[in-house]
């Protein structure tokens, strides 16, 4: 099997399959789900049965349906936040690496200050002041996350900007934006993509911890992270309820990372053959 002109490895095929299955399930949740998101359908933590084949949750809602609806929130939020934090972090990081050292110092110290405060506490502060709407949530986590991306992209870009092809572009009179986009970015892509896979999963979990503290996604809306938290105590009674959303997070994480690995393997090649 081939994709974008590259041979698809076994792992990558599995990864794509997982992601595809997730996307389909989530986007058609309304039609697939047997019950509504907030419908109470039976006993608290009822074990899996023919009708509710993943069992019921802490309030007696159907786990499978909530998983599908929760996925909508979790995945789209995580994706949006990661994409945002990467755009922000990369632009800042590259700017710091390609312009003069004053801008670099200013940006770096700013990031240091943000990073000096524990991320969760800072997020709590911002969210409790500005309120817990979804846009605020996205903005806050994206900005906090972008500090990590900034560090990585700055370090990677530093190694690239000393190359003579970047100097040649400068000598030609190219604008900063062009240099960042055409000379630096393509060469910085591999480590950044690997980081993207990781960050995506961290974001998923971070939303979960905020939801747990009541500052993330608000009930009765479901999301995978809060589903784990809500059902966590079931583990004491031998229930599988918290394992179901956890497994969903794990599965998607593995799928994303399998694809990222494959992407790295085709881009890491020295000669870029086959492209």
């Amino acid at each position: 099997m081939r994709l974008l002109g590259h041979r698809l490895s076994g792992g990558a095929a599995v990864g794509f399959a997982i992601i595809l299955a997730n996307i389909v399930a989530i986007s058609f949740a309304r039609w697939i789900a047997p019950y509504g998101e907030a419908d109470l359908v039976g006993d608290v933590w009822a074990p899996p049965s023919g009708a509710d084949w993943l069992g019921l949750d802490n309030l007696g809602r159907d786990m499978f349906s909530r998983l599908l609806f929760g996925g909508q929130t979790s995945v789209s939020l995580a994706l949006l936040i990661t994409a945002l934090s990467f755009s922000l972090g990369i632009v800042m990081g590259f700017t710091a690496a390609t312009t003069n050292r004053w801008i670099d110092a200013a940006l770096s110290r700013l990031v240091d200050i943000i990073m000096a405060i524990p991320q969760l506490i800072l997020a709590l502060m911002v969210l409790s002041v500005l309120g817990t709407s979804i846009p605020v949530l996205i903005g806050t986590i994206a900005i906090l996350d972008s500090t990590r991306v900034f560090r990585l992209s700055r370090a990677v870009a530093m190694n690239i900007t000393v190359m003579e092809y970047v100097e040649a572009a400068r000598l030609r009179g190219e604008k900063l934006w062009w240099i960042m986009r055409r000379e630096v970015l393509p060469n910085a892509l591999p480590p950044l993509i690997a980081e993207f896979g990781l960050r995506f999963c961290f974001t998923l979990l971070f939303i979960a911890s905020l939801s747990f503290l009541g500052l993330g996604v608000q009930p009765p809306e479901a999301d995978w992270g809060s589903m784990v938290r809500d059902n966590a105590t079931a583990i004491n009674f031998g229930g599988i309820a918290p394992l179901v959303p956890a497994a969903a997070i794990a599965l998607l994480t593995i799928g994303v990372n399998l694809v990222v690995d494959w992407f790295l393997s085709i881009h890491g090649r020295a000669h870029g053959e086959g492209a």
Binding site: M163, E164, Y165, A168, R170, L171, R172, G173, R182, E183, P186, N187, G272
Partner: peptide, 28 residues
């Protein structure tokens, strides 16, 4: 400095480097 020179001035002086590996962007 570079930023003060006009595009035409930049065009008229070109440079060739010692290490062609480093002077060419491997992704282009």
């Amino acid at each position: 400095t570079l930023s003060l020179r006009s595009r035409d001035q930049l065009r008229r002086i070109q440079m060739i480097y010692q290490m062609p590996d480093m002077a060419l962007n491997p992704r282009q």
